[in-house]
Amino acid sequence: MVAAIRVETPARPEAARAAGTAGGTTPLAVETAGLRKEYGRKVAVANLSLAVPPGEVFGFLGPNGAGKSTTVKMLVGLVRPTAGTGWLLGHPLGDTRARRRLGFLPELFRFHEWQRAEEFLDFHASLYGVPRAERERRIAEVLALAGLDARAHDVLRTFSKGMLQRIGIAQALIGDPRLVILDEPTSALDPLGRRDVRDVIRRLRERGITVFLNSHLLSEVEMVCDRVAIIDRGRVVRQGRLAELVAGAYEAEVHLEHPSPALLHALETRWPAVHRPDTAATADTVEGGATGDNTLVVRLAIQDERELPSIAEAIVRGGGRLRALVPRRMSLEDLFVQSVETRNA
């Protein structure tokens, strides 16, 4: 309970960590304060503050070039922040104590391909300091988890891209981590492989392991994540529990036949448009906006379904011809597009 309150009000990180050590509660799995990275004059990450509670699956989202991979690299100690600080499992970034309990699958999963699968895992287990006696059991365990038990004796050079990504996940789990950071873990996998990875992530959560998932596959994130942060241009634009972020956000999808600009204007003054095609180009060219038969689709933000009759009424009064009026809950994709577009507008 204490942990929950602490997490919901991400107060000062100092306070949170103090509570973590003194109170006996687990510290946040990942925490950053004003993390910044510049490459020359280019700012990759501007001012990033994250809080990832332990035991959850955390989705880290953002458009290409938003700074996701740079952030992840700063977390695992591959890249030095220009400014700001962060903590993994209560230890400052780069501290070997945190890295002892950290599993990481890099976006670029390239390994020493002359090694045999078991040899590769044995080497990485040894870096974690896993005792020799225990390694064999661990290797068998993670190979099974990655679905590669049959390939233990094969040289990595003979692996397909998907298999390399799987052995990369196995490598991330070999040290019995408390925190697993996966950077685009399914980029090389087919749909079945993706489902396997989702299952692995769920099993990790069942064991109380925090998973930090960097992905641009929104459907995937929606299926497994408890909490998400959306970043754009190196800043967090949304952060919170997935259920809360998309809850309460309703929208009405309105299909109108040849609407007049006046009617559209009237509607949008009462209900802000979540998404509307450019009216100048209304005709039938705008993708997703106009359908082939000159019907315009507008999505309006509403509080709840009780507003639907008022919308219908306003349309009829404005002389519009209503084809369809569909209430929709916001999906993660909508939230994502909205968050990123708002900033870019």
Partner: peptide, 13 residues
């Protein structure tokens, strides 16, 4: 090549 990524994130200086 990126082969150092999975090594340097481990408890090694």
């Amino acid at each position: 090549q990126g082969t150092l990524h999975s090594i340097l994130c481990k408890p090694i200086a």
